[in-house]
Structures are given as C-alpha cells and as structure tokens.
C-alpha cells in the first residue's frame, strides 16, 4: 500500500505540492487528473525521491519511508515510473539497462538465453519490433515508440506499483490501443497497483474499476470514481475545480 500524508514538495524554493494526501491500496488503480501545472508530474517524481525536491511529510510504501530512500532502493521495492517524457540515453541499449537492473536487483548472473527469450516474448506482447531491444534507450524514437519502449522495461522488471505519467500523451489511435491492451494484460497477470496521471479517458477504458482524484494548486480537491472522470471529460476541469473548491470550503 502507498500512503502519502501531509506531503509538501518544493523545488527551487517554489511550493509545488501542498498538504497532498493520497492512499492507494494493493491492486488498486488510481487516476490523478488536473489542469496543467498543478503538480501531477511532481508527485510522480516525488514518490521516487527526486533529488531536486525538498520533501516534507510522509510517503510510505508497505511500511518503507520513501522520503529517506534512494530512487534505486525505491525501484527495488517494486515501484516503476514511466515518465511523461522519458529521457533519451544514446550509447546505452535497452538490453544493457534491463540486464544490469535485473542482475543487480536479484544479485545473480543473468542467463543470457532465457533473458533474450523473455525480451522477444515481451516484444510480441507489446507489438514492438525485436530490434528495439538493442536500440539505445529511447534515442531517436517517436513519442509513441518511447512509451512502448518503456513498457519493455516494465514487463521485464515486473513491478508491483506502477506510476504512469501521461502515458497516453503523444500516442496515435493505434499506439494507444497497443499500450492500453499491454497495460491491461499486465494488470490482469500481476495485479499491480497503478497510479495513472492523465488528461483524458481513453487510456482508462482498459481498466474496469478505478478511483479518481483531482489536483489543484498542489492539493487534491475532489475524489470520486469512474463517473468523475466522465464528468471531467464532458464539462472540463474548470467546472469541477470550482465545485470541488466549494465542496472543500
């Protein structure tokens, strides 16, 4: 279970998250929505204790205080972050990254034949050409290719808690179908908890049930279920943000 209580996050002396509270149980899908610039990406990186942030308050996962852990240790607890704009790292291949990560995490030598076989299986699942395994991390890839490329790491590392920061941005209709179906398959196989940051409903239809929270000015102002996401899609944030603020007054 992920438990965030009275969280404040500052970057370069600017307050981004202010008294942020959120609990996500094991196996639960939670959707975070909100206008641009309200701190959605910040919470994703704050969970991983990004070094640029000054964090006060509580972020706990299964009893571990994440605010005192390195991103490496947090990842090894089983958390996975898929960033809105994944970095491009020329000169390091996907295979090299994933092999190193698995080898260090499990403290074992990786059987290269089993490893390659598994990579190929996953490429089939996520409809990614096998050549991507040996391509440099996200380098010279389109927005959609980067998202699919990140799924390769996700399936290989088998996380228990997944953070998807606008995974649907920059995806065309076909890519969205592949990404959505891949995530659905992962969810049905491993039942991870998932935090989805999104502006749209398209990716949400791949999940049967989810909670929704709306973020404004660094705090959650409204929480609901699938109906709230539907309402946002229809009426926009402004109407919900205003009524949400009134609810909290």
């Amino acid at each position: 279970m992920l438990e965030i209580k009275q969280l404040n996050v500052k970057a370069e002396s600017k307050i981004i998250l202010n008294n942020f509270n959120l609990t996500i149980n094991d196996g639960e899908v939670h959707v975070l929505m909100g206008p641009n610039g309200t701190g959605k990406s910040t919470i994703c990186k704050a969970i991983f204790n990004h070094p640029d942030y000054e964090i006060t308050g509580k972020i706990e996962y299964d009893g571990h205080d994440l605010t005192k852990m390195t991103p490496t240790a947090i990842s090894r607890l089983g958390l996975f972050l898929l960033n809105q704009n994944p970095v491009e790292i020329e000169g390091i291949t996907n295979a090299e990254l994933i092999r190193s990560a698995l080898s260090e995490k499990n403290n074992t030598h990786i059987d290269i034949f089993k490893f390659n076989k598994r990579l190929n299986e996953i490429c089939e699942i996520i409809n990614l050409p096998k050549s991507f395994v040996h391509r440099d991390i996200n380098f010279n890839m389109s927005g959609g290719e980067k998202k699919k490329n990140e799924l390769l790491s996700l399936f290989m590392l088998e996380p228990k808690f997944i953070i998807l920061d606008e995974i649907d941005s920059g995806l065309d209709v076909d890519a969205l179908k592949v990404v959505g179906a891949s995530l659905k398959k992962y969810y049905e196989t491993y039942h991870p908890a998932i935090l989805i940051v999104t502006h749209h409903q398209d990716i949400l239809k791949y999940f049967p049930k989810y909670q929704v929270s709306i973020l404004k000015d660094g705090s959650i102002i409204k929480t609901g279920n699938e109906a709230l996401a539907q309402e946002i899609e229809t009426t926009g944030f402004e109407a919900n943000v205003i009524s949400g603020s009134k609810e909290n007054e």
Partner: peptide, 26 residues
C-alpha cells in the same frame, strides 16, 4: 546529467552502475 542518472536509478540501477554505464557511453 542528473536526469539521466535519476532515470537509470528509477529502473533499479545503483548509482555506481548508472555512472559506469554513462561513462562508457561518453
């Protein structure tokens, strides 16, 4: 690059391994 290091660490690489990979790349 701080963001490169952060990215590699969020995938579970230790700081040392992440730096070694980035150095090799360089």
């Amino acid at each position: 690059n701080k963001e490169d290091l952060f990215y590699l660490k969020t995938k579970g690489l230790s700081e040392l391994t992440a730096k070694k990979l980035l150095l090799k790349r360089f």
